[in-house]
Amino acid sequence: MSKILVIAEHDGTKLSQATARCVTCASQVPGAEVTVAVFAADPAAVAAQAAALNGVAAVVTVAAGHNAHALAATLAPQVVKLAAGYSHVFGPSTSFGKDLMPRVAALLGVPQISDAMSVEGTHRFKRPTYAGNAIVTLEAPADRTVVATVRTASFEAATAGGNAPISAASVEATLPTHTRFVSISAPQATDRPDLSSAAKVVSGGRALASKENFALIFSLAGKIGGAVGASRAAVDAGYASNELQVGQTGKIIAPELYIAVGISGAIQHLTGIKDAKTIVAINKDPEAPIFEVSDLGLVGDLFQVLPEMEKLLG
């Protein structure tokens, strides 16, 4: 049997969709028994959401004031203690998991599999390298804990319908005081869907040419009920904020619909959208590499295409 511990990502009240996708990956490991661990100041609400996911056999909570903010240095020693008895420890390959899991792996003295994109056996996984240009199949040692981050875009989110038991665990670990949370500035809350989990995403690139023009992207996204993304070029140029960046070094997403506007399609961007079900490309350059991966391509000037599109969408 594979006893898998999934470390929940959450904001104190809501379990992230990335965690639900991570649960799906864990469920695919042969003989999986999946336990979700929730570290929080007050884990009740998040634990209830985790317990309701199909595929989750149990939820353990570690309630403590020092778990109010996810600091890798504080969480890692606790995860290591909790991991005793588990064959696998998984976390989502988000900024949370990428920060925490390597610290856990190093403390356990085991190598980590980053961005697991498919499960090939109890200890065998595929992962992308070179911005997705080379897919590597890796086999982890059978006698050690498998630590992995999960490429969430490769897995559907576990659906609700489960009813796993929730238990509280106390973890005796020496915690450092050398790392302190100060603040987090999230963009103003909107009713717009979250980029990481949105079903539809409209993304803008360098061709938008200014922050003001980027409003066209927000407008189309609003029209179709989608989230807004951006290429690295657009973020670097200051047209869009950093958390909107899609690609190798930004967010890896898998929406039903991805509309790339004025994005040429550098390989580093394409790796972030490859798992989108339908990719639409709008670009004035017919040779743009984005057309090599798009399902629907339109050569045209975005400043004419976008207003016309909104009009036709009614």
């Binding site: 904001d11 988000t94 302190r180 949370f181 100060v182 987090i184 500035s185 999230a186 963009p187 958390e243």
Partner: peptide, 9 residues
């Protein structure tokens, strides 16, 4: 630079 925005530690 975290997924939710900018975190200061």
């Amino acid at each position: 630079e975290v997924d939710a925005g900018l975190e200061t530690i």
